[in-house]
Computed example of a mutant assay.
Amino acid sequence: MSVGGVDARTPGLRAHVVVAREHFAVDVEVEVAAGETIAVMGPSGAGKSTLLQALAGLEPLTAGEITIEGRVVDRAAAPRVQTPPMNRGIVLLSQEPRLFPHLSVRENVAFGPRAAGVDTRSARDSADELLVRVGLPGAGDRMPRELSGGEGQRVAVARALAASPRAVLLDEPLVALDPETAGEIRRMLHDQLAGVTTIAVTHDAADAIALAERLFIVEAGRVTQSGPVREVLAAPASGFVASIAGVNRVVGAADGGALRVGDVRLCSADAAAPARAAAAGTPLAAVFRPDAVRLVTADTADAWRSRIIRLEATLAGIRVHTELCQVDVSLSDAEGLAPGDEVHLCIDPADVRFVAVD
């Protein structure tokens, strides 16, 4: 599978990873230019962590090849190449910092350079400089047990950078942090990984937007969508992408410049919509925000009927899940609503965008 979209810049990481799993095979091609950061998102169990484990050399390839800066570090076919993890120039950062508990913060950061033959004083001086860069000046003498979760992740980043990696792999490093700390670490990662070839697996669209230039969606072991982050989120090709982008994605068929799904006919004011909807029966998806949909009376023009499946409390009010789409309403507007109720809904065509369905 070709993902494309990368220009002819200096080669960074190029990989075709095939790993056989119990229920399906992970089969992903990815190319990251030198100094570029890409994000990878997908449902739980889709193969994202397997991809990173294979790139890091912790999961054997069933087929495929991995190249770092033009050097083959893993190849399943003959002549077989299987470079040990410590010699690949790839650092994997996971949800846990995994610091050496018996070493000080400074010695944790200096460990990689010292193991590579750098003299002790130079390695320690460099470690102190890196600790300043990640926001922990003067923390060198502390022990890992004395650090908060956010501080531990900062040290882990400093230790990774100390090894002068050819590529950095992030496996949801912010998932265990509170929102405020996660925001601080996200900004630090953006600053410190600038110019470092990076693949960031995340479950949060905010991470993808803040850290990455491009976004790859992996579902059931395959790349189902890729491109610039905001473009992917604006035109979701699956229900999963729509969910992380926080929008509705209603799939139907073109019908005279509109989209029809059952008895519902949706229109769009998007200038490109008529062209996309020109051929009757062409599969289309309508994308729109839950807060753009309105609860209306039965006699409202262009309203459609739908049944409530469930109600979900949100920070702003209530999200009404109906058979067709999700609707955000205030607490007062939701008063008296219950699962099973029939409601009438309406949306302004200016709030609807049509996207092609592959």
Rank of each mutant, 00 (worst) to 15 (best):
V155E: 08
D178C: 07
I209F: 09
G117S: 09
Q95T: 02
G138S: 11
D128I: 01
L130H: 13
E107N: 11
E172F: 01
A212R: 00
N108S: 10
Q192S: 15
R114V: 12
G138C: 10
E180V: 14
N87I: 01
T202C: 12
T197W: 00
Q153A: 10
E184N: 06
E96L: 05
L169P: 00
R214T: 00
A115K: 06
E180W: 07
D207M: 09
E151F: 11
D178Y: 05
H102S: 13
A158E: 12
G138H: 08
S94N: 05
L93K: 02
A208R: 03
R145F: 12
H102D: 07
V168M: 12
L99N: 02
P173Y: 09
D204E: 14
D125I: 04
P165W: 12
G140S: 14
E213L: 04
R133I: 06
A208W: 10
D204M: 13
R106T: 11
S122K: 13
A212M: 04
E129W: 10
D178L: 06
R186K: 04
G152Q: 11
L130Q: 12
F100N: 10
V201A: 10
L193R: 02
G183M: 12
P144D: 09
L215V: 12
D119Q: 15
T181G: 09
L169R: 00
P179T: 12
A139N: 07
P173D: 11
E107S: 10
A110V: 03
A110S: 14
R159K: 15
A127C: 11
I209P: 00
G149K: 04
A163G: 07
A176I: 02
V168E: 06
V157S: 02
I90W: 00
P144Q: 08
R186L: 08
A167K: 07
S122Q: 10
L131F: 14
A208T: 05
A158M: 06
V132W: 06
D171L: 01
V201T: 04
A116Y: 07
P173T: 01
E107D: 15
G195N: 10
L215G: 00
E129H: 11
D178Q: 05
L136C: 10
P113M: 05
A160K: 01
V105F: 14
D178E: 09
R154Q: 13
H190I: 05
F216Y: 13
L193C: 02
R124P: 02
P101I: 07
G183R: 03
D141K: 15
G89I: 01
V175L: 12
L189P: 00
V134G: 01
A110T: 04
V134C: 11
F111Q: 09
A205M: 12
L174Y: 09
D191L: 09
A182E: 11
V175A: 15
A116P: 04
Q192P: 03
A163W: 05
I209T: 14
A115S: 05
P179M: 11
V91A: 07
V155T: 06
P101H: 07
D191E: 13
I90P: 00
V134E: 05
A205T: 15
P113T: 08
V105N: 14
T120F: 10
R88Y: 03
T202F: 12
G195D: 08
Q153L: 13
A210M: 14
V175F: 03
I185P: 01
R159Y: 14
V105G: 11
L170C: 04
S164K: 06
D204Y: 13
E184V: 07
A200C: 15
L211D: 02
R214H: 05
E180Y: 08
A127T: 06
A205F: 15
